[in-house]
Computed example of a mutant assay.
Amino acid sequence: MSALVSVVVAVRDNVPALPRLLMALLRQDYGGPIELVAVDAHTEPVLTRSSLAVSRLPVHVVHEPDAGLSRARNTGIRLATGNIVLVTDPTARPAPDWVRAMVTALEYGGAELVCGQVSVTVTDPPSPRLPKALLALVGSARWPTVPGEPDLPWEVSGSNLGFRNSAVPLQFDEEPPGSDRGHRRCGAAMLAARLGAQGCFVQVIPDAVVHRDVPPREVTVRAVCARAWWLGTVLARLARELPPDSVPRQPCWLPDGPVRWVFSRGGRLAGAACLASSAGRQVERFRLSASPRRARRTVVAARG
């Protein structure tokens, strides 16, 4: 009998996107049962189980007021009852073979954590692609063609992750309550990098694809700089824990050479991302150097 799969989503200001995710889950070619665990991170409850009952999937809804993205996902993971836990976003549209590809990799590949590709499309104005300097902030910037370990674990996306459930499941680093109301701080990079550093097998699955429609509010200067700043702080923290040569010095990069990026909106956003990520890394580096070094947090891998 195929394993029960729990799909965890954190919902904040993207409730209208949920029906498309539910339809994509109903179209999965996976032979086993699937349940949805939706974490309502609004200040006041917005989601109800009855509002999602039309999906014909078992649905669990929990309210976690003003929780950041990592905290909301952790709440959903703790409530998940499936043998396999998959993490994605309400704005995601998994390919029909997504669940099957992730489950197969976890059951037969021996990985502690599997990561799928996130294909991004900007919805307004319609655009099929983003500069690579921005793509790493909302999707998968570089992707292999065969399964293997990630070359750049800090580019792993929390919109497409999976692991085996256990009494002590994998958890993301949490931000203080109320500090990430925009859901722009994803703990997937820290999780993947730390697992890899501890000798755990983290595997990328090229065939496990999730499509994301990125709304205009996610590609404004403010949103891009917020995500890039966060990426810079993540790399500063990883540089303190991992060998220095394993973490890139430049979190973001300019597209198409040093000058041409100025003449497009995407290029200018990429330039802003470069400045914000570098500033975030420097500020976090100074903050860490001024604070006493703490023992490295141990991530307990979920084993089936």
Results as ranks from 00 to 15, higher is better:
Thr43Leu: 14
Val210Pro: 06
Val59Ser: 11
Pro150Asp: 02
Glu107Gln: 08
Glu64Asp: 12
Ala295His: 15
Val11Ile: 00
Val62Thr: 15
Glu175Asp: 14
Gln282Gly: 02
Cys200Gly: 05
Leu22Trp: 06
Val214His: 02
Arg212Gln: 14
Gly182Pro: 05
Val122Phe: 06
Arg184Ile: 07
Gln28Pro: 06
Leu36Asn: 04
Trp253Leu: 07
Ser157Asp: 06
Glu284Lys: 01
Pro58Ser: 08
Gly68Thr: 02
Val8Leu: 01
Val54Arg: 14
Val85Pro: 03
Pro94Leu: 02
Arg294Val: 11
Arg287Asp: 10
Leu47Arg: 05
Gly304Lys: 02
Ala270Phe: 09
Leu26Tyr: 13
Ser50Lys: 09
Pro144Phe: 11
Leu26Asn: 13
Val120Ser: 15
Leu86Arg: 05
Ser70Val: 11
Val168Arg: 15
Arg260Asp: 12
His63Asn: 06
Gly82Thr: 10
Glu155Ser: 09
Asp207Arg: 14
Pro96Gln: 08
Phe201Tyr: 11
Gly187Phe: 03
Cys274Pro: 04
Ala53Val: 00
Arg237Gly: 01
Pro90Leu: 03
Leu242Thr: 04
Phe286Ala: 14
Leu235His: 03
Arg217Asp: 15
Ser291Tyr: 11
Pro33Cys: 05
Val85Glu: 03
Thr104Trp: 12
Thr298Val: 15
Pro94Ala: 07
Leu134Cys: 05
Arg296Gln: 13
Pro90His: 06
Leu152Asn: 05
Cys252Lys: 02
Arg293Cys: 13
Arg181Ser: 12
Glu155Met: 13
Ser140Pro: 12
Val214Arg: 05
Trp154Phe: 04
Leu106Gly: 03
Val283Glu: 12
Thr81Leu: 08
Ala133Ser: 13
Pro251Tyr: 00
Cys186Asn: 07
Trp261His: 06
Asp180Leu: 04
Leu25Trp: 11
Ser127Cys: 10
Val204Glu: 13
Gly199Cys: 10
Val8Asn: 04
Gly116Trp: 04
Asp180His: 11
Ala295Lys: 14
Ser55Pro: 10
Leu238His: 03
Val210Ala: 06
Val234Gly: 00
Gly139Asn: 07
Thr81Gly: 11
Ala290Glu: 09
Gln117His: 13
Ser291Thr: 09
Ala95Asp: 11
Glu175Trp: 11
Trp229Ala: 05
